[in-house]
Simulated assay, not measured.
Amino acid sequence: MNSVKALVSLGLLLCLSGCTYGGPRLPYDSWRLGLLAPDYMEVWIESADAVDVQDRVFRRAMSGVAAIQKPKNLKGDPRGWPEEPGDGAGKQVLGADLPRLLYVRWQSLAEPQTYEAYIVIPEETRKAMLVGEKAYCRADGQWITDYRNMLSIGLAPGGVARVWLMGQCLSALDVARVQGTVVKLGPDGGQSGGRYALPLEPQSQEYIERYGIPYDSW
């Protein structure tokens, strides 16, 4: 009898869950989360998590090395952010509805220091993610209906996180700038004995030793 009651309760729960949430109703299969860093300011992402509007959590939607450029002969410029930052190193967040909150914990290898940031996605940004726009794609010379279904996060020394919304062939929209906080336990939640994931590449090390870190530019 108890097992029957348990099955009935589970069935009701699943029904209620399905009726309340259902699947995501987006004009595309998924949206993308990408991460990048200024020239030479290398970053290791411990975890980038997402929470959608149905309060479902997608843990470690992205982790690893952030996209970065390290031009030869120290010709790069890490100061500030480009107008079109690029989509970053990332992944599609499969099965998610529109994003409500992003959480990023990362190692700023240039300093080194470990930070975390909570990024609230505004309602206006979510509305923009549902609007299709006519766009010309220079890569193949085609006009398409494009959607801004790509969120890119720039991670800079000092714990700065900058967020943009873009499409494959649409310009980037500024979403937010968030000041992260230092993770007191250090890298890997204190499990690595204070050791950071990777050493700086020689070019990055040389740039920082020669020019320093432009903290006030981000």
Results as ranks from 00 to 15, higher is better:
M166R: 14
G11Q: 07
F58Y: 15
I208S: 01
P85K: 02
G34L: 00
G64E: 10
A117G: 05
P24L: 06
K91C: 01
L33M: 09
L130W: 01
V51T: 07
G22M: 07
G88S: 12
A67R: 02
A128F: 02
E133M: 10
L173V: 05
W81L: 11
S152L: 10
F58G: 08
K184M: 07
A48N: 10
W81Q: 09
G194F: 02
M41C: 11
Q54I: 03
A176L: 10
R138C: 14
V160P: 00
W106P: 00
W218Y: 15
Y207A: 06
G158M: 09
I144A: 05
P24C: 13
C169Q: 05
L74N: 06
D174A: 15
S47H: 12
G194V: 04
G80F: 03
L200G: 06
V65T: 14
P157F: 01
A156V: 07
M129V: 08
P99A: 08
A172D: 13
L14Y: 15
V120D: 14
Y103H: 09
R60Q: 14
D52P: 04
K134P: 03
A156M: 07
Y136R: 04
A61E: 09
W106Q: 03
G189T: 08
R32D: 07
I68Y: 00
S204V: 04
E84F: 12
F58E: 14
A66M: 09
G193V: 11
V163D: 07
W81R: 13
R105A: 09
L173K: 08
R59W: 02
I213Y: 02
F58I: 08
C169E: 06
V104E: 06
G90F: 01
T114F: 00
V43E: 04
R105Y: 02
R148P: 03
R138L: 15
Y21H: 13
R195Q: 14
K75E: 15
V104M: 06
K184F: 00
Q168G: 05
D49L: 04
L173E: 13
P27T: 05
S9G: 10
A156F: 03
G11N: 08
R195A: 12
A128H: 07
L102S: 03
K134A: 10
L94P: 01
A172M: 05
L10E: 13
D216T: 12
G159R: 01
W143V: 08
V53E: 15
Y136W: 15
R100N: 08
G23M: 14
Y211K: 03
Y103T: 12
W81M: 09
A139K: 11
G193T: 11
E123W: 05
L170A: 06
Q54E: 07
P199D: 15
Y103G: 04
S17W: 07
L26E: 05
T181W: 00
P82R: 11
I153M: 13
T181K: 13
T181F: 03
E133Y: 03
K72A: 14
L101D: 11
R177E: 10
Y147Q: 05
L130V: 06
R126Q: 06
E123V: 10
P199T: 06
R56L: 08
G167M: 03
